[in-house]
Design a protein around this nucleic acid. Structure first.
Lengths: 204, 204
DNA sequence: AAAATAACCGACTAATGGGTTTGGTTGTTT
DNA sequence: AAACAACCAAACCCATTAGTCGGTTATTTT
């Protein structure tokens, strides 16, 4: 194999496994050796490619998490259809994959934010930025909805966006331990109820 | 001081400081020495009173967290007034103290649940039980509301309860890092909007 | 083929943390 | 005065972990 390709392949393997374990067990609770053991790679290989554990983690955020956030949380709500439907369906989709994969990236974000809060400002910056991208996109989707006549124009888009994010994060926390399916079902009912209430009132 | 009183005083000091540090830095990221250093106490004292770090943590849950959950999240929503108002005001209250103390106990619960998920079943049991107490109480408050004619009788009380908990946990996660005041304000507006929508429809 | 270098190995270090033990001190109770 | 509870101080054990470093293997370049 070509050298630079091999480099990338190895780095990528490490990142994927790293994310998996960091997510499952927590960053501080996962050792570099844990990751290497799973891949049958050595410490030398790891520190050949990455400066430090922290550096490694940031590279994961940049190359894996951000992309997934885009493909799962942002792209699905773009377009000019009814944003209320787009958002509902997107959340439903994400929660369904979460139920089986237990690896949706909105929650990955949330999980890490909880873990690093007040401990590592450097990493928190990256996490918050990524979360902000989601938030900004929700806001602009809602605003587009106002413009297109789908959303009532009295709605506070920023408020709704951060409320959606809040409730989503919360329900994902509960889903990890509790009965995921019924939680998802209930949550989707409630959020649909909530979102429908802000649809543009059609005069009959 | 009387012996048993002194014992309790020391244990209590350790528990309070322990909770503070566990909450701020995480359980796994806080050493027993960290706690003892802050109190100028010795390891001997610690292991004289507690069997282990885990035993110590469980004692904190039992003697501090549970009580606070009752006084902050459960007692305020008891009574026969409009449950929609009771719940809204209770959440507002808790978020306000959270903003200044950064130590409300609904979130303490959430924070630990996130940390111990899949790592320590023993501790998770205590956390989930405590959370369940809150949930059960929300449900029965809502049901009482139906009975008293405050809440629309088509409402799914379990669904609403877990949705309230979800969104609350989520917003508290965001409040730690983001601009707490505006988040709280927005969140309260949205949850009030949501809750009002399930009020019993009075015929004018 | 030889030199150069990229990729990788794994033993080791230094530090940390949970937990134990021990020997002694102070204050209270009986 | 004897007994005991509530500590202190410090050494110590054992396991874990981030990071280092000298050396080896594989691949590319000359």
């Amino acid at each position: 194999m070509e050298k630079s390709l091999k480099r990338m392949a190895t780095m990528h393997k490490m990142q994927v496994t790293g994310l998996e374990l960091f997510y499952k067990q927590g960053y501080y609770n996962t050792s570099v050796d844990d990751i290497l053991k799973k891949l049958s790679l050595s410490k030398g290989a790891f520190y050949y490619h990455f400066k430090s554990k922290e550096d490694f983690f940031i590279s994961i955020l940049q190359s894996l998490v951000v992309k997934k956030v885009y493909s799962m949380l942002i792209e699905p709500i773009e377009g000019h259809d009814n944003p209320i439907d787009l958002i509902s369906n997107c959340l439903e989709e994400v929660l369904q994959t979460a139920e089986h994969n237990e690896n949706d990236y909105g929650f990955v974000l949330h999980n890490f934010i909880t873990e690093f809060n007040g401990k590592n400002p450097e990493i928190m910056k990256y996490l918050n930025d990524t979360l902000k991208v989601w938030e900004v996109n929700l806001v602009s989707t809602l605003q587009r909805g106002k413009f297109n006549g789908y959303v009532d124009r009295h709605i506070d888009c920023e408020g709704v966006a951060s409320y959606i994010i809040s409730s989503f994060m919360g329900v994902r926390t509960l889903m990890v331990e509790g009965s995921a399916t019924s939680l998802r079902y209930r949550y989707m009912q409630q959020i649909r109820f909530y979102l429908r209430a802000m649809a543009h009132k059609q005069v009959a």
